[in-house]
Amino acid sequence: MSTDLARRPGLDQLLAKVLHRGTWLGSSVIALGLALPMAGWSGDSSAIICTRIVTAGIALLIILPVLRVFLMLIVFVRERDFRFSAIAMLVLAIMLLGSALSAP
């Protein structure tokens, strides 16, 4: 019976760590980009640089779930769980297809 169970504490812990740290990293980068102009940093290109920093933080947050699925894929492949490797790969493909179809 226990082999039927879907629980796998090792992977749970890994994903918890990655998602937690990734959210903090992305949020901190956004905070930095927003705080710099308020802290009085100004100059010719400062507004553009700050907007780019915020964009980078947003990109980090958007990439995080993609990374999460990728990590699951690696773990499934290593465990030779090919059915779930295929499922994870399919999810990744759908996520990336969206950007390919919408890129200008």
Partner: peptide
């Protein structure tokens, strides 16, 4: 993220 990636790319 599936739509976020697309909106971002667009």
């Amino acid at each position: 993220a599936a739509s976020g990636v697309a909106y971002f790319a667009r």
